[in-house]
Design a protein around this nucleic acid. Sequence first.
DNA 1: AAGATTACCTGAAGGC
DNA 2: TGCCTTCAGGTAATCT
Length: 273
Amino acid sequence: MPELAEVETVARGLKALRGRRLVGVFVHDGRDCLLTPGRLAWLCGRRLAAVERWGKWLGLRLADGHRQPLWLLLHLGMTGRLLRASAGAPLPPHTHLRFALDTGEELRYSDPRRFGAVQVLAGDELRQWLARLGPDALAISWTAFRARLQRRARIKALLLDQRVLAGLGNIYADESLWRAGIHPARPACSLSAAERMRLWRSMRVVLRQAIRYRGTSVADYVDLDGRRGAFQKHLHVYGRAGQPCRRCRTPLVRILLAGRGTVLCPRCQPEGG
DNA sequence: AAGATTACCTGAAGGC
DNA sequence: TGCCTTCAGGTAATCT
C-alpha cells in the first residue's frame, strides 16, 4: 500500500529524470483514474522540471519555456505502480497510462484495483487543489500537530484523514501508535500533551526509518525500477496479529477501527490511556 | 455537523 | 479441481 514512505521513494527515483522531455502520452484504460482526461495532451513536448510529494500524492511539474507550468498529479491508491521501462518492454497487465520520454524510456502507470487517480492541473490551479490536503506528515510542526488533535474522533481515524494530516495509511498509523504506546481507539482530544508529543515523534521516526528502507512491500508495492522495499521486515504490529509484542511479548490483538484492520498491543497501548 | 459507516474495485487466499 | 466467499484498504459518498 503506497503511503508516504513509498511515494517518497518513487519521488526520489523520479528526480533522476528531471530535464527529460515528455514526447508522448498513451491511454490504454483510464476509465476511472483519469480525472481530467482531455488535459493529457497538454503535457506533450514539456520537460520534467521538478518532482514534489504532498502526502501520498506525486506532483510532476512540466515546464515549457515561457508558458505556464503544468502539474501531472499521480496517486497510487492501493495497488498503483509507476514504473520506468524501455519503450519496447512488454506491457504489464492493468497498465492504464504510458508517458514516453525523449530518452526512449517510458513511465508506466498501472493499478489493478483502480483506487489511484491521475490529474493534470495548470500551475495556477495547484494552490486551490492542495488546500484540500492537510499538512504533510513529515513537514507538520509539533505545535500544528498538537492543535489538529483537538477533536473527539478516534486518534487512528484522525491520523488516516488526509484533510487532517497527509501521508499516513493503515500501516504507518498502526506503527506510529504502537511506538507511542497509544490505543488507536482513544478520542484524539483525550491525549495529554506528553502523549501527543510521543505520537508526533514516533510518527517521524517510523516514517524516516521506512524511507531509509525504501518503503514497505507487503503485497504490490515496488519502486520506479521494480524493486521491493525492505521495511516490512521491521514492522512491529502491522500484519502481526496474534504474534508476541516485540516490546513486552504480549500477543498482539486485531480490532476493526475506522473500517480498517487495526493491530495493537493491549499492554503497551492501554485503552484507558 | 462531526464522526462513523459503506461503496468502489479486483486479485489472493481459504473453505468445502 | 473448481467454485464460492471473504478480505485487503485509500478515498468519496452516504448515513446518523
